[in-house]
Write a protein that binds this DNA or RNA. Structure first.
Length: 497
RNA sequence: GGGCCGUUAGCUCAGCUGGUAGAGCAGGGGACUCUUAAUCCCUUGGUCGAAGGUUCGAAUCCUUCACGGCCCA
């Protein structure tokens, strides 16, 4: 038995028999039907017209799409055809069609089939815009039954595994992915308007860099060489700034070899952009402008409703440092507690945070921040002054080299973006890479690799630059009120069936 | 990784303290020329996620596994 045969059933067998009949009669999968409009266009153009006006206009149209419902009343039927733009009702009458077509429509064709129809636009007695068909054809036989018309497809596993069925059945799914595309288009327009250059950098890298994460490995056979799927494009984009592309961005996939959750998929989409002669403050301003504008344009509102909460993208975004955030949410902790390694470790242990011996003060502070503050950052918030220890690619602050000119951006308790003034001191970068190697040797397999070519690029001179990464999937979750990252990925990663 | 929940017809779901399975929709047959979850009459359809175990008897109880969902780390 073939794999395919395992889920065959009577319904499929009946449809296969109908397809066999079609093959015997001639071309079973014709491709000569041409439509001249779509459902949404008809509805937009003629919904407001009266039946009399439509009769006087006498508009003839050709539409095509999937048969989603059929109500047979003897010698006449109503049906709904769904195309990319929406649904239009068909009125199909035996005596308005060539001999023999109507019985096929009733018996040989099934809900789910792809049809082409031609006729005049009119309104039914109940006022629904419809097409009175005088020609109708089967264009593609569907062999598998669709889910039930009322409840549709609700099983989440099937919605993810068989996204094509989910898209056929669920308008909210279709809308989620349209919004996703509009968001990405908004970003492209926003950055293009500001003279950023969109580029593509390697997905397969000999040295994985730009983030602290475990990479996927692969092998190039001809070169007999191990390669890593990229965890970030960062180091390549900054090489381009060295090369003189002073404003660049890339929107593309990153791959991280981590567990799956409602917020993690092994491949996910990231926007990264870099602009020379700006700093992280400029970047925060740009981010705020972009996200506010995106909400207005894509959702028509600066208030985002997510899982019962509301987030305000219209007011100025909150800005505070890592330490301020900790002190705000834990008034019992003092600044002095955070500035001393021993006292900070005690604080962390009281909070039941597991610490490694190798953690310095900066890492301990961040662990405390993540435990007590991060999940409480609901409205759009920039957190700044990240410790240098946890920011190996960011520029040190001029007044306090313990921290960097870096921010992360949070909404709804979730990290959405990460940006900083870039470290363009090649010698400092070399030391930071060395420190990462030490951490790797100490057992941290997420520590960064030493990238000698990147250092060589920095030695040519990276202009003062700021750069940022924005997680597109999490942003889309927020904008589409989706509880799981799988809801915003067309084909989320699943275990084998 | 841990806890809880789920997996029954193509889909959405019932199935009680164990007695070998049901509905609606879809499908098949019939009636019906303004319906829209069309309606009315008749009707087909199941490896109850998988494998073990307990029992005279398991969809139901137990164990393990698979997949998914939610929460936690």
């Amino acid at each position: 038995m073939t794999e395919q045969a395992q889920d065959e059933n009577k319904l499929i067998a009946q449809r296969r028999a109908k397809l066999t009949d079609l093959r015997e009669k001639g071309v079973a999968f014709p491709n000569d039907f041409r439509r001249n409009t779509v459902a949404g266009e008809l509805l937009a153009e003629y919904s407001e017209k009266t039946p009399e006006e439509l009769e006087a206009l006498g508009i003839r149209v050709c539409v095509a799409g999937r048969l989603m419902s059929r109500r047979v009343m003897g010698k006449a039927s109503f049906a709904h055809l769904q195309d990319m733009s929406g649904r239009i009702q068909l009125f199909v009458q035996r005596d308005n069609l060539p001999e023999g077509v109507y019985p096929d429509f009733k018996k040989a064709w099934d809900v789910g089939d792809i049809l082409g129809a031609e006729g005049q636009v009119f309104k039914t007695k109940t006022g629904e815009l419809s097409i009175r068909c005088d020609s109708i054809r089967l264009l593609t036989k569907s062999l598998r039954p669709l889910p039930e018309k009322y409840h549709g497809l609700t099983d989440q596993e099937q919605r993810y595994r068989q996204r094509y069925v989910d898209l056929i059945m669920n308008e909210t799914t279709r809308e989620t992915f349209r919004i996703r595309t509009r968001m990405v288009q908004y970003i492209r327009n926003f950055l293009n308007d500001r003279d950023f250059l969109e580029v593509e950098t390697p997905m397969m890298q000999a040295v994985p860099g730009g983030a602290a994460a475990r990479p996927f490995t692969t092998k190039h056979n001809a070169l007999d060489m191990d390669l890593f799927l990229r965890i970030a494009p960062e180091l390549y984009l900054k090489r381009l700034v060295v090369g003189g592309f002073e404003k660049v961005y890339e929107i593309n996939r990153n791959f991280r070899n981590e567990g799956l959750s409602t917020r993690h998929n092994p491949e996910f989409t990231m926007l990264e952009f870099y602009e020379a002669y700006t700093d992280y403050q400029d970047l925060m301003n740009l981010t705020e402008e972009m996200l506010r504008g995106m909400a207005e344009e894509v959702l028509g509102s600066t208030t985002i409703h997510y899982q019962g909460e509301s987030y305000d993208f219209g007011s100025p975004f909150i800005r505070m440092t890592v330490k301020e955030a900790i002190l705000k949410y834990r008034p019992d902790i003092t600044e002095a507690d955070l500035d001393d390694l021993d006292r900070a470790r005690t604080m962390a242990e009281n909070l039941e945070i597991p610490l490694k011996e190798s953690y310095g003060l900066g890492k301990v502070q961040i662990e405390i921040f993540e435990k007590v503050a991060e999940h409480r950052l609901m409205n759009p918030t920039f957190i700044t002054a990240y410790p240098t220890e946890v920011s190996p690619l960011a520029r040190r602050n001029d007044d306090n080299p313990f921290v960097t000119d870096r921010f992360e951006f949070f909404v709804g308790g979730r990290e959405i973006a990460n940006g900083f003034s870039e470290l363009n001191d090649a010698e400092d970068q070399a030391e930071r890479f060395q420190q990462q190697l030490n951490e790797r040797a100490a057992g941290d397999d997420e520590a960064m690799h030493f990238d000698a070519d990147y250092l060589r690029a920095l030695e040519h001179g990276l202009p003062p630059t700021a750069g940022e990464g924005i997680g597109i999937d999490r942003l889309v979750m927020l904008f589409t009120d989706s509880p799981s990252i799988r809801d915003v990925l067309l084909f989320p990663h699943m275990r084998a069936e």
